[in-house]
Amino acid sequence: MASVPPASVPTLPQPASGLAVWALASREVLRFLRQRSRVIGALGQPVVFWVLFGAGLGPSFRLPGAATGQVAYAEYFFPGVLVLILLFTSIFATISIIEDRREGFLQGVLVAPLSAWTMVAGKGLGAMLLAVGQALVFLALGLALPLSWGVWQLVQLVLFLGLLSLALVGLGMLLAWRLDSVQGFHAIMNLLLFPMWLLSGAFFPAGDNWLAWVVHVNPLTYGLAGVRRLLYVHQPDAAVLHGLPSLGTCWLVTAAFALLTLAASTWAAARRGRGDLR
């Protein structure tokens, strides 16, 4: 390779990964705030779910091993809604990659001096900030629940929600990188992401049938269990914690889940598909 004569490339800026990650992440936040419908949808839908399912399923809900009415469905479902908020945010982040490609913004990013990892980290950080921010707003509603709160508990919860949202965003990006239509993504969402959430113990406790096995291997089960354990960290004997994996296992599995999906989406981002050309 010939060396570049000094005359051909005078002082050009030095790219910095951290700055580039921040550029992409802050863009995600700006875009989110510009789209009022997205703000309303992302927060409103889980709240509506929580209120409607809480009211509708409440009378017939009985936690295994607990007496009827001991744990209200609204209380059981609360961590599920928190995770649902993270899932929705990850879905929006994923759709935004498809939109970036269709609207052409992505092509400019692809020729910028960035590594694939920087692209994934920027998108991931932006989505994580949005997800955790929205989850915190919803968490305020949790004050109505019979939970005891502490500062260290909140710190842990925020960190765990952040890690879990990174895992979900990574999964979404992995799917999005090969898709070129939002319609295609809806199919994947209904087929994979939503069932994954349903079978995580968010909606109903794992029973004794074949579903229990699916719940057991579903990585999101550990994300949900982690959120549940952290919400009840001051009430270790709470009936809702019965049969859940330990908090340590939850951290470990969720961290591995996040590493795996982020690494895989970096790999996918480093490969050029025809969809990247316009």
Partner: peptide, 8 residues
Amino acid sequence: RCQGRLYG
């Protein structure tokens, strides 16, 4: 601004 930051 976003473009500038991508280029350092």
